[in-house]
């Protein structure tokens, strides 16, 4: 693989639901080992973007290349081969509630990689320890854990197969500020140790500043600004300024009905 070739290269990505165009031509590159955070308001298409990259949704047009390989339209075994490169932390954790914690973490190793259960359990316990959870948690079921613990288990699951690319969908949503910081630290540590390429989507600016090398803002179905995290405060873009300062007044209008 060419060193300068992006890990993920997206060109002209569009996706509509009925008459509503959510993505109107996304162009985005993510370099190897880079942590990119995509920010944007609710309903701007951040989750749709991630789902298109993961093959959970089929884009209407455009190209998504992983390590230079076109992935749009891949199915079956080809898709599963590409998916082995990915880890994903879902917004609601998406833990399998019928399985104990350790089996959730080791799921990809058992079902995806065909590892024996005992071996997968050893890996799962190590990954749980890496996110600060002891072996006593391993036999519990997800419903018995707090929201923060569930997020940590989901993070352990996302890194269990030591993926080359990790996606984080709203990793701190619904957590208190301290637990959010714990999760941000764990994300930085895990991504750093694995040397993985990371794509996160969030509206939590504190989180974005902590975990990003680079930030891109999505608005109106397009990437309207991207740059290093240090440049976000001097972006010169009114939309970005309004968003990062959380102002109601500005070019981004929320459809709010009067009382």
């Amino acid at each position: 693989m060419n060193d300068r070739q992006p890990k993920i290269a997206i060109r002209g990505l569009t996706k509509s639901f009925g008459l509503k165009a959510v993505l109107k031509g996304i162009d985005l590159d993510i370099a190897v080992g880079e942590s990119l955070v995509v920010i944007g308001g609710s309903g701007t298409g951040k989750s749709v973007l991630i789902k298109c990259i993961l093959g959970l949704m089929t884009p209407d047009s455009g190209s998504i290349k992983i390590d230079g390989e076109e992935t749009v339209g891949l199915n079956g075994g080809e898709r599963e081969r590409i998916m082995a490169k990915f880890g994903m932390l879902f917004q609601g954790s998406a833990l399998f509630d019928s399985l104990p914690v350790w089996e959730n973490v080791g799921f990809g190793l058992i079902a995806g990689d065909g590892k024996p259960r005992r071996e997968a359990k050893e890996v799962a316990l190590r990954k749980l320890a890496a996110v600060g959870l002891g072996p006593d948690v391993a036999e519990l079921h997800p419903a018995e854990l707090s929201g923060g613990m569930q997020k940590r288990v989901a993070l352990a699951r996302a890194i269990a197969r030591e993926p080359e690319i990790i996606f984080f969908d709203e990793p701190t949503t619904g957590l208190d500020p301290i637990m959010s910081d714990v999760i941000n630290d764990l994300i930085r540590k895990c991504v750093g140790e694995l040397g993985a390429t990371a794509l996160s989507i969030t509206h939590d600016m504190a989180s974005a500043r902590r975990i990003a090398h680079r930030i891109a803002m999505i608005y109106g179905g397009r990437i309207i600004w991207q740059g290093p995290v240090a440049a976000i405060d001097s972006s010169g873009n009114d939309h970005v300024d309004q968003f990062i300062h959380g102002r109601a007044e500005g070019p981004i209008k929320m459809p709010v009905r009067p009382l």
């Binding site: 993961l54 093959g55 998916m83 609601g92 998406a94 399998f96 799921f107 990809g108 995806g112 197969r161």
Partner: peptide, 13 residues
């Protein structure tokens, strides 16, 4: 609750 999507991301059909 996205658990089916999670299966796909874990290389499981």
């Amino acid at each position: 609750t996205d658990q089916i999507d999670a299966l796909s991301t874990l290389s499981t059909n």
